[in-house]
Design a protein around this nucleic acid. Structure first.
Length: 830
DNA sequence: CTAGGGTTAG
């Protein structure tokens, strides 16, 4: 809308009056178009305190502290005296960036210069001190105040509860001269968010007894409380109350309800809440829908999508997403990130690519969230190159993004590169956190970089003072174990008192298998057994180990033990996606319609491979696979061989073949794939339970797959990549129907380039008609309600090419200059 | 523009 108004003003060559300009500015700020906001601000004829304040407060909300401070200083240089609102915004920015000293400076400055400390400003100050943990200052300010409103009390209460001081907070609550809804909400919400759900619940009941009626926030917190405590009944009662209050149509409440039902796994209850509001009312093309309503609606739908993803219903998630686009609900960065991470878990490259294209198309800025989920998506879909490409595009990556990139390298066996990225990150001044260390250690263990791994482990403890967690320990044990340093691994376990951690023991056990140390393996197995985590994997592992050492009776005993206990191992499955279909194969699978072709080709292929040196020695190799039964190999062929054979006969020569498997690839298959790739000159990419294997033509070019194919359960890796969906997602047919819907997205969206035209093409009847023009959202989906405006009033083409039009020239929708990214201010901010 | 609620990333 701001664009439209602005375009109109420019067209009319109107000199914007200060009021109009300020109004425009606030519109830009509200719609997060800071690029334009800055431009307008710089060109404004005369700027008053309000202009400065609008810009500053907008920036304060989006968290760019440096820019806020810069503007604030510039404002003073220009001799504009800030008012309470300005100061309050600057303080808020300090508060969210924990800039205690600067806040203190501003406080002193306020006192010196003699600006009235009104209640709101005092509250802002209070808030800064509390958020920065300076309770001494906060307390002093709080106690000496003549006027303390409910907000002041709540800020204090919330502050104390945030640092875990429940007693102090409760004390304040009891001291309150008036316990209104707000204070009840604050204390209940605070308790809930700090792990005191039970106390929070008690207070909620007290609140009811007390006769304080609920407001929106209470309903919302109550529902979150119900979902974290899995109190379905409580949630339903609240739902009932909501209905009695008649506020079930309100956006925020609906989101909370949807969230509640999703978290409780009751998708069938969540869905009607979305559906019971006719789409017409929420359609972003409906002029009667306010911006707030539209945004809330997007949140509600995004919540539903997140719920589907949480409940592993990817089809539902995608279906909802498609509906959001089709029905013009619109999507926001939350929606996209959720969908992108869903693609990562699905591991379907084509779908991921479409989502990426979709993001490009709507021209959304690559923020950290989106960037990291895309890096993650590409790496989990098998394309390290694309992951790198995304990473490179983002100007100043944060920890999460760096970590995603390192994890991508780890996932693809690029240990050295992972370490390089890690070092680069540190050099860039980004502080690694515990997850960064987990992934870099994982990378080391994948690549067998023992020394580097130990260095990282020390670095983590000694320099960054991060207490190692289960994942870090497991990686370390894995590193020692794979290097054959079993004694050291055992010492490490003893030294760190981690022999009670099943993932550590499992990793140790698989190293024992690898290096054929039966006795040590038994030690670990015993421990695992006592921990009651002696699962299928461990059974098979130990049994294979015994078999390998020709201790057949023990092996057989373990097998039968496993049967008696009813422990079933996961059947091996591999799948390949061709066109819009997923083809799944079990071991020795004969259910595929083209089974005859597959098998005869496979036999032929194996014969040819043998000529160039492939040998499928059986007994020894069978035992090496942890989770495959030995009989399976005798029966026929591992699932990955079938999938690959099918892939070869169904695709043209030279097409890369991507397959996925729900277990690890055994060494025989690994060999098989290596030779196949060499023989046929095909690139083969295999995603197994914990990483990717790349095979390129020719033995020389085979990836530096230092992760010896014999390494077994990869427990540590599984652990670090919990989010890599290990199961085969259940998506065989339905999702591909949705693919079709996906391809048609373009017709619902306006291309970025066209957006520029639209902005300029829109004609409006005058300021009073503002409400009939739907704003140009970042997604370009909302254009103008042409029922009201009509398209017959288009600006004439000559006008559009007026060279003096500053906006015409400066519109830049290229990905490099994101509309959401503010331009440089003073040439130095970022 | 002036506390606090709901959805997102490694």
């Amino acid at each position: 809308m701001a664009h439209t108004l602005h375009a109109k003003a420019v067209k009319d060559c109107t000199v914007l009056s200060l009021n109009v300009a300020n109004y425009l500015l606030s519109l830009y700020v509200k719609s997060h178009n800071f690029g334009y906001a800055h431009k307008l601000f710089d060109e404004m004829p005369g700027r008053d305190v309000r202009s400065w304040t609008i810009l500053i407060s907008g920036l304060a909300r989006t968290g760019s502290f440096r820019m806020v401070l810069q503007l604030f200083r510039k404002m003073q240089v220009e001799g504009v005296r800030p008012n309470q609102f300005t100061l309050s915004s600057v303080l808020r920015s300090c508060s969210s960036s924990s800039e205690r000293l600067i806040a203190k400076g501003i406080h002193g400055w306020i006192l010196r210069i003699g600006i009235d400390l009104d209640t709101a400003l005092e509250n802002s100050l209070l808030d800064v001190y509390v958020k920065c943990g300076d309770f001494r200052c906060a307390e002093r300010l709080f106690e000496t105040r003549k006027e303390r409103d409910s907000i002041a009390w709540n800020i204090m209460m919330d502050g104390y509860i945030r640092i875990g001081n429940v007693d102090k907070s409760m004390d304040l609550f009891n001291r309150l001269p008036f316990q209104d809804v707000d204070s009840w909400n604050t204390i209940i919400g605070g308790l809930m968010r700090n792990g005191h759900e039970r106390t929070a619940l008690e207070l909620l009941y007290q609140m009811v007894k007390n006769g304080t009626s609920f407001d929106k926030v209470t309903f919302s917190t109550g529902l979150v409380l119900a979902s974290t405590l899995s109190l379905l009944e409580l949630g339903r009662q609240i739902h009932g109350l909501v209905l009695r209050f008649g506020i079930h149509g309100e956006g925020f409440i609906r989101t909370s309800l949807v969230n509640f039902y999703c978290k409780c796994g009751k998708m069938e209850k969540a869905l009607p809440i979305i559906k019971n509001v006719p789409l017409v009312h929420l359609n972003s093309l409906n002029p009667k829908t306010t911006d707030d309503e539209k945004m809330t609606e997007i949140v509600t739908w995004s919540t539903l999508i997140a719920g589907y993803v949480r409940n592993d219903d990817y089809e539902g998630a995608l279906q909802t997403f498609v509906s959001m686009v089709r029905e013009h609900i619109g999507v926001d960065q939350f929606t996209i990130t959720t969908i992108a991470s869903m693609c990562a878990n699905l591991g379907i490259l084509t779908l991921g690519q479409q989502i990426h294209a979709f993001i490009q198309k709507i021209g959304h800025a690559m923020d950290f969230h989106l960037g990291s989920s895309l890096v993650d998506m590409y790496s989990k879909c098998g394309s390290l190159e694309d992951a790198r490409m995304i990473f490179k595009k983002i100007i100043s990556p944060n920890v999460v993004l760096w970590t995603s990139m390192i994890s991508a390298c780890a996932l693809h066996g690029q240990g050295r590169e992972a370490i390089q990225f890690f070092e680069l990150m540190i050099r860039e001044g980004i502080k690694p956190n515990e997850i960064s260390f987990t992934v870099v250690l994982t990378a080391c263990s994948h690549a067998g970089l023992l020394e580097e791994g130990c260095k990282c482990f020390r670095l983590m403890k000694e320099v960054y003072h991060i207490k190692p967690g289960v994942e870090h320990f497991t990686c370390m044990v894995d590193l020692y174990g794979r290097a054959g340093r079993l004694v050291e691994a055992k010492e490490f376990i003893a030294r760190h008192h981690i022999s009670h951690l099943s993932s550590v023991l499992k990793s140790f056990l698989s190293s024992c298998r690898l290096h054929k140390k039966v006795e040590m393996g038994k030690w670990a197995s015993k421990k695992l057994f006592h921990l009651k985590s002696f699962d299928a994997g461990s059974h098979v592992l130990l049994s294979n180990m015994c078999a390998n050492k020709h201790r057949w009776e023990e092996a057989a005993k373990l097998r039968s033990l496993m049967q008696r206990r009813g422990i079933n191992k996961l059947p091996g499955q591999s799948w390949i996606q061709l066109k819009n279909q997923v083809h799944t194969f079990f071991v020795g699978d004969r259910s595929h319609p083209r089974k005859a072709e597959i098998y005869s080709y496979l036999d032929e292929l194996i014969g040819r491979l043998k000529e160039i040196g492939y040998s499928s020695s059986t007994a020894e190799l069978v035992m090496q696979d942890v989770e495959e039964e030995e009989g399976e190999l005798l029966l026929g062929h591992h699932s990955e061989k079938l999938a690959i054979a099918y892939g070869i006969i169904s695709t043209p020569l030279g097409t890369p073949i991507r397959i996925m498997k729900n277990l690890r690839v055994c060494s025989d298959c690994h060999n098989f794939i290596k030779y196949t790739s060499q023989l046929l000159g095909r690139e083969i990419i295999v995603r197994d339970i914990c990483r990717f294997h790349h095979f390129k033509h020719g033995p020389k070019e085979v990836e530096e797959d230092d992760d010896d194919e014999e390494s077994l359960s990869g427990e540590s890796i599984k652990n670090s990549f919990r989010s890599l969906s290990l199961r085969k997602p259940n998506i065989s047919t339905g999702i591909h129907r949705l693919f079709k819907g996906f391809k048609n997205f373009s017709q619902y969206f306006v291309y970025k380039e066209e957006m520029e035209e639209l902005v300029m093409d829109m004609e409006i009847g005058g300021p009073t008609d503002v409400k009939h023009v739907t704003h140009i959202g970042w997604d370009g989906s909302a254009t103008v309600n042409d029922a009201v405006m009509g398209w017959e009033n288009l600006i004439s083409p000559e006008l559009l090419s007026v060279p003096s039009d500053p906006w015409r020239r400066s519109f830049d929708f290229s990905m490099a200059a994101q509309p959401d990214q503010p331009p440089l201010v003073n040439g130095s901010a970022s």
